[in-house]
């Protein structure tokens, strides 16, 4: 097992603490099946290397997942010219993740960490630029937070050096509350995916829980058009025959 990047500097009062869902992503991305798929998709063995792949994680939180990918690019992709970029709606998560990834990338020969931007999903990225998209969304079926407070809660209160209790609760709500079926944020992400993934080699890894109705999500992806695939490639938390969490990979296969 590859080591988990350190997040000891992160304040988990307002940034999502790595949990079972985060670790399922780490295990799946570094599994033999996925590394074989990614080596092939990103031409690891080719004498004529393709252009540097761009990996984007939406909702980086502590940064543990993207830091893991950045630190193990050679193992996961078979190349060390991979670029990583993160986004999060929570500005405190952006700062924390930036540090986590920076610390995890030990040398310039490991991979290239770009930045973390404070953004809604991938809406600040140019269309068809993302080669690998990772999203561990807020997936719990519970009411979405009241976004009208976002502007004031996304920054330290004026003149203060620490956040308030209400602010912290709001920021953590952003990390787990997914609205109806836990799918309101994820559905907006799914809508962006066909436009944001690169044409020839784009692939997305999405974490879902059982209440998100994963079978329905996969069918929806397959209905995007010719060649679109969606498969469950990792699961955890088996209880009475039910997988609590799973990772769905979606990509377009060119004939």
């Amino acid at each position: 097992m590859l080591p988990t990047p350190s997040t000891s500097h992160v304040d988990f009062d307002r940034v999502y603490e790595p949990a079972e869902d985060s670790y399922l992503l780490l295990d799946t991305l570094s599994s033999a099946d996925e590394t074989a798929f990614l080596h092939d998709r990103f031409d690891a063995a080719s004498k004529q290397p393709s252009s540097s792949p761009l990996v984007v994680e939406v909702g980086v939180g502590s940064g543990v997942v993207l830091a893991f990918v950045a630190a193990n690019a050679e193992i996961i992709f078979g190349r060390h010219d991979v670029l990583t970029l993160g986004t999060d709606i929570n500005s405190f998560a952006c700062q924390a993740a930036s540090k986590t990834i920076h610390n995890a990338v030990k040398s310039a020969q490991t991979s290239i960490f770009l930045d973390v931007v404070n953004s809604d999903l991938a809406s600040s990225l140019r269309p068809h630029t993302i080669d690998l998209l990772i999203f561990n969304p807020p997936y719990v079926p519970t009411r979405l937070p009241d976004f009208s407070r976002h502007d004031s809660y996304n920054d330290l209160p004026a003149g203060q050096t620490s956040t308030t209790f209400e602010q912290d609760s709001y920021l953590l709500e952003l990390a787990y509350a997914g609205g109806i079926d836990g799918m309101e944020v994820t559905n907006r992400m799914l809508e962006q995916i066909p436009q944001i993934l690169s044409f020839d080699r784009g692939v997305a890894y999405l974490l879902l829980c059982a209440q998100n109705k994963p079978e329905k999500v996969k069918q929806c992806v397959r209905d995007w058009g010719t060649g679109w695939k969606a498969e469950t490639i990792g699961t955890s938390g088996k209880k009475a025959g039910w997988e609590r969490l799973q990772i769905v990979k979606m990509w377009q296969q060119k004939n």
Binding site: S91, Q95, S98, V117, S123, D151, N154
Partner: peptide, 18 residues
């Protein structure tokens, strides 16, 4: 205009622009 503060760019839009 999107602000960059301490190296982090903020692309969040006021609700009505999304």
């Amino acid at each position: 205009e999107y602000a960059v503060k301490e190296g982090i760019a903020n692309f969040l839009l006021p609700g009505h622009l999304v």
